[in-house]
Structure formats: structure tokens, C-alpha cells
Write a protein that binds this DNA or RNA. Structure first.
Lengths: 239, 239
DNA sequence: AATATATTTGAGCAGCGCTCATTTTTAGTG
DNA sequence: CACTAAAAATGAGCGCTGCTCAAATATATT
């Protein structure tokens, strides 16, 4: 086979692959992973069932290919945010918005991702899949870590933060938050919701946090100060 | 049938039901929901497959029964914590520990719970299941809300907190945190990990939090300190 | 046109969730 | 105890699933 024809035939194959991925993505998103049969996927992609298994060794691997795409989008946006010049608070807000919007668009996928992420099968193939996903996840969270690290360097964030805990709160809160959002059905005000979630986190990690100055606390500090000042005054007089 | 015999026969039936639930719980936990066939469940429970469907109209309902148990445990512990006399910080810590320990023990279940929680099928039965789960979830989160509300009343927490956001961070962080814990494999120091997670939340919601910032406050505190220290020094010399 | 290679196909397999006619067990009665 | 009616348990069988593989078809090379 010549180089040119090899190229065209490989291109043809890749097109087929993409068609199958596309069909599967839509079906998984609309009907869920387990509710979508490989026969339906084949039909939607306009090929026979055997062809699907010709391109993907099993249904799980097909899903993994979809998740790869999914992570690619998440990661590239995250890295864009990191490259742009903006303050740490805005970076976190944008990252959170992107994350929530992506997992919102396809929660069936997220769910399955979580399952794969957990999978501790002895099966070598699924093991490969999961470690690949771990790598994706690591690359993604590395973006988050970079934002935090830079934030500390800039003096926006407190030094000595427990990065893992903050990360768990950030992504976990978003994921859980999506579920409550999904139930109360208001998909439009994602932006508002995200800032409601980011706000408490920001409050606990930023140096500049405008402390909403709870009256009770203000009063207490005020009292304590006055008392010390008064004591100092009397002491100074005595001496 | 007399009342007595009815009672014994019903007791017998309930025992069978519990045996099936027990077998299914173990299998789901060890092999996952989709990887466990109803035939295997029947075999493990020592009955025929038909009997399983005699007690539970389908595999999903069997799972729902298991989740019901699971939530029962979570809720009763949460309500115990609420009844005991202790400060808000400790309450949150205990609630978080209980939550993490429970979902740790059976993450396959948690995963499926999430899926059911999402389910928006038109099927009336699954609809019943999901609304029942929503009710359980609401009862559980009500305990969390009570802790927050009481905390505000006591003056431990800032008034005007966004309860939903805090709740999402709390439970979402725990769930996500469990996954990272599961991967890094250190199931013993749950307690430590929980406090690492609770700490940032506490920092952002409590009134007593040592606020590390606000120049105005810092300056004033600094001045007061210096003044007291100076006074102390002179005092020490005089004596 | 002939041949070699790559791709596609769908009948078939074992296993799935679930049903239901049939059998077995249990409880109540004279 | 035998007899009966109701309750519980059974497993063959149905339509479906994910997946395989020998055969058929399409493509590239000579």
C-alpha cells in the first residue's frame, strides 16, 4: 500500500470511529449507558453491530473514548484560564463555571466516569482504562493546583493551605451542587449558583477576604480591645 | 387464618426478605450492581430466582430496599448527634465522620444511589422509588440544616449563611474526598481527613474563626499587643 | 483482470432481568 | 389423623443483552 492510500484509508477509518463515538455520545447522554444497547449505537451510526466492536474492543472502551474527549475539553479550558492574565478569584469562578456547565451537559457520562474511576477489577484492559482516566484527572486537577499555587505566590491566598482538602471541596461541591440544581431545575442561572459555591471557599482561603463582619464578632473584638486599652491605661498611670 | 398464624407466617416472610436483602447487599458491595445477576443473589440467599421476584418486583426495587436501610442508619445517627449536647464544630465533625465512614463502607451503593437519584424515567414505579429517595435525602439534609440553624442561634455561626451552598460543599466534599481517599488507600485515618475537610468550611462559616486578615483589624490588634507588651515589660522591671 | 489485503457483516452464543404455569409447603378444619 | 384451601417457592422459557467469528464484501496493488 502506498503512503497516500494508507492515509486516505486511515482517514476513512477515523471518520467511521468518530461517527460511532458521536452516535454513542448522544445515546448515552439521552438514555444512559446501560439503557443503550450496542445494536442501537450501530444503527444510529449506520453500521452493523460487528463494526462497532471492530473499532472498540468492548462497550466500556467506547465509553472511555468518549470520556477522553470530555476530559480533553475540560483540560484545555482549564489551561486557557491559567494562561490568561486575571486575578485568582476570577480564575476559580471561571474554572467552576466551566466544570459545572460540562458536567451539567452530560451527567450520565459523569456518573459512569465515577464508576470507572473506582473500578479495581483485575481485568488488565479495564485497569488500563482506569489508569488512563486517573492520568486525565491528575492533569486536570494539576490546573487547579497551579491556580492555588500562583494565588499563594501572588499573595491572594493564604500560605500553607491544605490543597487536597480545598480541591475536594471545590470539585465535590460542584458535583453535588449540580445534582441539587438538576432537581430544582434551573439550568439558566449556573453562573449565580457557581458564585454562591465559590464564595464560601474563597472566604476560607483568601487573604483579602472581606469578612462580612458578623455583628457578634465585631462587638466581641471591640469589647476586648477596649478592655485591654483601658487596662493598659490604668497600668501606665500606676507606673 | 388466625391472627397468631398470620403473624408467624408474616414473620417467616420477613425473614426471607431480610435474607435476600442481606445477600444482595454483600454482592452489590463486592461486585457492583450491574455485575451481580439476580440468579447469583438467589443462590446466595438459598432460594430460587423466582422467589427473589416474589419479594421484590424488580432488581431496582431490591436495591431501593437496601438504600432505605442505608439511609435509615445515616439519619438515625444524624438525629442522635442533634439530640446530644455539644458545640456546633463537634457536631459537624461527627456528622462528617459518620457520613464518610458509611459511604466508605459501600461506595457501589452510593454510586447507584446517585444514579437513581437522577433518574427521570416516565416509568411510574421508578418515579415512586426516586421520590422516596428524595424524601430520605431531605430528611437527612434537614438534620444538617438544623445543626446550622442552631449554630446560628447559639452565635457559633454567622447569620445569613447560604445554607444550600454550605450543604453542597459539605456533602459534596465528603463524597469527592472519599474517592481521593479510596485511591490513595489510607482507610484508617478517616478522622484526620475529615477534620482537614471540615476545617476550611468551619473557617468560612464560624463566627469565632481566627480571622487572619483585614488590615484595619490587624493594625489595631498589633498596636494593642505592642502596648500591652510594653506595659508588661515596664511592669516586670518595676517589680 | 487477477490477486491480496482490509473492512464489514449478521447469525449465533451465553448470560441477563423477568414472567407465570406448575409444584410444594403451610395453616386451618372436622 | 386425613382433607383442603391458601400461600410460597420453583424453574423452564421469553426477549433482550454484550460480544465473537467465519463468511462476504469492498478496496488497493500488481
Amino acid at each position: 500500500m502506498s503512503e497516500a492510500t494508507q492515509k486516505t484509508s486511515r482517514a476513512r477509518g477515523e471518520r467511521r470511529e468518530q461517527e460511532i463515538i458521536q452516535a454513542a455520545t448522544e445515546l448515552f447522554a439521552n438514555q444512559g449507558f446501560h439503557e443503550t444497547s450496542t445494536r442501537k449505537i450501530a444503527e444510529a451510526a449506520g453500521v452493523s453491530e460487528g463494526t462497532v466492536f471492530n473499532y472498540f474492543s468492548n462497550k466500556n472502551e467506547l465509553l472511555t473514548a468518549i470520556i477522553r474527549r470530555y476530559y480533553d475539553g475540560l483540560i484545555s479550558t482549564a489551561e486557557e484560564i491559567l494562561q490568561q492574565e486575571m486575578d485568582t478569584h476570577r480564575r476559580l469562578q471561571l474554572l467552576a463555571e466551566n466544570h459545572l456547565r460540562t458536567i451539567w451537559a452530560d451527567n450520565a457520562l459523569l456518573m459512569r466516569m465515577v464508576q470507572l474511576y473506582f473500578n479495581t477489577d483485575l481485568d488488565i484492559y479495564s485497569h488500563m482504562e482506569t489508569t488512563e482516566l486517573h492520568q486525565f484527572n491528575q492533569r486536570y486537577t494539576r490546573s487547579f493546583n497551579s491556580i492555588i499555587r500562583e494565588g499563594i505566590q501572588r499573595g491572594d491566598l493564604q500560605p500553607g493551605l491544605n490543597k487536597q482538602a480545598i480541591r475536594d471541596l471545590f470539585f465535590g461541591g460542584l458535583e453535588y451542587g449540580m445534582r441539587t440544581l438538576a432537581i430544582h431545575r434551573k439550568p439558566n442561572d449556573i453562573e449565580n449558583y457557581v458564585s454562591e459555591l465559590v464564595e464560601p471557599i474563597w472566604k476560607s482561603i483568601s487573604t483579602s477576604a472581606k469578612i462580612t463582619s458578623t455583628p457578634a464578632y465585631d462587638e466581641r473584638l471591640e469589647k476586648a480591645c477596649r478592655r485591654v486599652e483601658k487596662a493598659a491605661r490604668t497600668l501606665e498611670k500606676k507606673l
